[in-house]
């Protein structure tokens, strides 16, 4: 089959399909598109702040001491060093920059290795609470079953963080 006739036939098929498309567009029940768009399409939407779902748990929840619960401390180093829940992993939350990919990968592997079925994050219980927001971040980046401790460290350790 020569190229010219090949292209011609392709053009015929395309034109027939296009015609069918236009007919369908006119008769379709829930209304097709107008042939010429008048108003520009809304291509952009407000940029969403990324994050996933987290559930709060109270500070006296017994699940916090289960083996199957992976604990994360979201507070800065000095607060962590002063006092933290035994076994809690330190992952200080930065308000601007997300957890680096490498660190997140290590976290995922550590959670998998520990056999934990849930992750509980606690922070400083402030407004906003860095524990809650770290929880949202890791939940949004694929970690499942993330909870945060309502009220954070002050509720857990019973003293106001200086």
């Amino acid at each position: 089959m020569k190229w010219c006739s090949l292209l011609a036939e392709a053009a015929v098929v395309a034109a027939t399909a296009a015609a069918a498309a236009l007919v369908f567009n006119t008769v379709r029940p829930n209304g097709g598109l107008p042939l010429i768009a008048r108003t520009p399409y809304q291509v952009l939407v407000p940029c969403p702040e990324p994050g996933g779902a987290v559930q709060p748990i109270p500070a006296d929840d017994p699940a916090l001491s289960y083996d199957r619960t992976f604990l994360i401390d979201a507070r800065p180093a000095e607060e962590f060093n002063r006092q933290h829940l035994p076994g809690a992993v330190h992952l200080p939350y930065d308000w601007l920059d997300p957890v680096p990919d490498g660190d997140l990968q290590q976290l995922v592997e550590a959670i998998a290795a520990s056999g934990a079925t849930r992750v509980a994050v606690y922070g400083d219980g402030g407004r906003p609470d860095n524990g809650e927001h770290l929880g949202r971040e890791i939940s949004g980046r694929g970690i499942k079953n993330v909870f945060f401790v309502s009220g954070g460290a002050p509720e857990l350790f019973g003293v106001a963080t200086p």
Binding site: A17, A18, A21, L35, I36, A37, P40, Y41, V43
Partner: peptide, 28 residues
Amino acid sequence: AIDISTYDILPLSLVNLAAITLPWIELA
């Protein structure tokens, strides 16, 4: 049509025609 507009290559007047006809050509 929104997908096509996002590329910002076709003029607005052609976007709807493309959105209507292209899928049928793909189908055929």
